[in-house]
Simulated assay, not measured.
Amino acid sequence: MSLSASSANAPACLLGLALSLGACGKIKENKPSETVQTRAEAKRHKAACASSTAYDRMKRVIFDQAREQSNHRTNLDTLEAFSFIRMEKPVVEGWDPALDVTRCKSRIILDVPPGSEQALGGDRRLAADIAYTAQGAADASGLVYALTGAAPIVNKLAAFSLSDATYRPLPAVDTEVSKAQPPGPDTLPTEIADRTSASQIEGSGADDDLGEKDAARAPHSSVAKTSEGPASASRPDTIAGSSGEATVRTFYNALGTGSGDVASAQVIPQKRSSRAYSADAISRFYGRLRDPLRLTSISPLQSGAYRVTYRYAAPGLRCNGSAIVRLSGGTRPLIRSIDATNGC
């Protein structure tokens, strides 16, 4: 009787098992969406611990802490602008869902510009093992970071006392050319040079006015005015055919993107290791500008030279610049010198 009852109950058991398996199947159907959400959360936490935005914000925290202890804040501003930060093996350690705080740890490395090491114990690279948290700002402006363990870096930065002229990367110009080299046939006419100097005034728009006046005076000249668009879009019929002009354009376009290797390759080999024209120096200066360089005009002069105008903003400097670019001879012209006619 017991066996018969057990046999009678078998279909019910099988039905219950089927329902149970069906229920399990239904749960499995929901898992993909849960997995997507889980992956999205993991990606968010990873970005909070390891992303270019995270590194820049942590660099700001470190320099802010150093400025609080320093009497040389302006120099630290310049040092911050031309230093690079990176992380080794950043790890997400946890997450507090109640406060939405992501906890991380990593080894932080700060690479400082050449010349600054003499005030940092000879170190071009400052490093520390840190723990840090990331939490959304109350004003929805992004993540706010809090660091522990960065004191070895902060203390060295707080003691930094060099003048920024010692370590600040130079713009890619020959700063002594205008003093050492007398005016030649490939320099600007006096009246144009005089009016060009006015473009140093911030926000004056003098370089725009100059281009319009030049165009009005000589409407059939090869002056390429580009104030309304990228330099590469300006009058290809008058500039695209010149290999020398192509070199100049490639150089300034590379400055605009901070591509030091490309820009330095347009310069004669003898100058590629100099402080102003090395790939590293160009990347450090032009790659960290608040407003990237923009080539606004280019026009040929005599003796294989070109006059260019451009604009950019660096820490503590806004430049509406003008320069004479002189090229070497040969099948592939290279830049021999750049004389900034207004100092930037």
Score class of each variant (00 low, 15 high):
306 Y>T: 04
333 P>Q: 12
267 V>C: 11
99 L>S: 14
270 Q>N: 15
10 A>N: 00
5 A>Y: 03
233 A>N: 11
78 T>H: 15
272 R>P: 03
241 G>W: 06
158 A>N: 08
280 D>I: 02
178 S>V: 02
187 T>Q: 15
10 A>L: 12
267 V>K: 10
298 I>M: 15
126 L>I: 02
35 T>E: 13
14 L>N: 07
151 A>L: 06
245 E>G: 15
282 I>T: 01
135 Q>W: 01
325 V>E: 10
155 N>C: 05
153 I>S: 07
219 P>Y: 03
318 R>H: 02
142 G>Q: 05
344 C>H: 02
198 A>V: 01
50 A>C: 12
344 C>T: 00
129 D>Y: 06
120 L>F: 04
15 L>H: 07
228 E>L: 13
40 A>I: 01
7 S>F: 10
90 P>K: 15
84 F>S: 14
261 D>K: 11
172 A>W: 04
214 D>V: 14
216 A>L: 04
336 R>I: 01
281 A>I: 00
174 D>L: 04
126 L>M: 05
96 D>S: 09
184 G>W: 03
325 V>N: 09
303 S>V: 00
341 T>R: 12
117 E>D: 08
260 G>H: 02
230 P>W: 02
71 N>R: 11
236 P>S: 12
327 L>H: 03
10 A>M: 10
282 I>M: 03
228 E>D: 07
20 S>Q: 03
180 A>M: 10
131 A>F: 12
244 G>R: 08
89 K>I: 05
61 V>G: 11
208 D>Y: 02
278 S>C: 05
237 D>M: 07
158 A>W: 06
179 K>A: 13
176 E>H: 05
14 L>S: 09
10 A>S: 06
302 Q>N: 09
327 L>Q: 03
40 A>W: 01
135 Q>E: 05
309 T>E: 04
294 R>H: 07
269 P>N: 12
51 S>C: 09
182 P>G: 13
112 V>C: 06
241 G>R: 09
263 A>M: 08
107 R>S: 15
196 T>P: 00
142 G>E: 00
56 D>C: 11
303 S>E: 08
71 N>H: 08
207 D>N: 13
42 A>D: 06
281 A>K: 02
19 L>F: 14
131 A>Q: 14
255 L>K: 03
97 P>N: 02
301 L>M: 14
71 N>E: 07
55 Y>F: 14
88 E>H: 11
148 T>D: 14
209 D>L: 10
198 A>N: 00
9 N>R: 13
276 A>I: 01
130 I>Q: 09
80 E>T: 15
137 A>C: 09
